[in-house]
Amino acid sequence: MNETEFSLLNILIAVIGGAIRVGTPFLFVSLGECLTERSGRINLGLEGTLMMGAMTGYGASYLSGSPWLGVMAAGMTGVILGGVHALLCQQQKVNDIAVGIALMLLGTGLAFFLGKPLIQPTAAHLPSLHLGSWSDSPVIQAALDINVLFVIGVLLAPAMAWFFRYSRWGLYVRTVGESADAARAMGLNVNRVRMYSTMAGGFLAGVGGSFLSLYYPGGWSEGLSSGQGLMAVALVIFARWNPVYCLYASLLFGAAATLGPTLQSIGMTWGYYLFHAAPYVLTLIIMITTSSSTRLLSGMPGQLSNVK
């Protein structure tokens, strides 16, 4: 009996640890997308940004020997891709979604192409904080080996919420996102605010990519993202455009994604295909239960509904 309890606790700890590890890229991409969408623009290209970020981050770390330089390089790649997206979208009669899909394909394709020589070499990885060193249990130690980027992400979520709510710039972003006309009446340059928001969003997505290649799972390979960038975009809707909810949602998705491997490793042998599908099933269930046919999704920026 004791043994089962112990292993239940073990599963719980392992799932939490996994949620943190797997959830971090979701967190960064969703925070980035949250910022962009709050300014009234959708960037579906973040999957491409994530891959480009992972690739350049790995490359920069490999060449320079400094993983932090890799993170910065990944972020800057994100800024460039975000800038391209913003520049294209502010032209007349250009559709955000079409541009986003184009950039997603471009980003992944380019990352595959340029990343060819990076599959083999091993680059310097990001360090982690050993928060579990007080415990004797290797399970707890492993689960609490937390990467600095996750800590930054956790701090960033409430900071971004504060930014939207109380700062002048946050107000600009929200105004532009709610009503471009009102923003223009206030004398704001709508395109410029959106440009900056998209670039900053790209930066975060790029950093999320560097987490994949420089920490977990580590290494550059073409299957690295397997759609995480796209899932993170969906996650923003699920989090109702609230950065703090983005944090919770990322952890929940991370936990759902670790469920399959964790249950098998403790000897639960049935239904692994079902558990692998858990994140997607979870999304569907929550979307269905929280949707309403009579009103718009609460928290949705007003300008988001009328994509050109």
């Binding site: 392992a14 397997s226 692998h276």
Partner: peptide, 12 residues
């Protein structure tokens, strides 16, 4: 080829 799942499986 699912690196994240493989890493997660290894850790679990």
């Amino acid at each position: 080829s699912l690196p994240v799942k493989e890493a997660e499986a290894a850790n679990s």
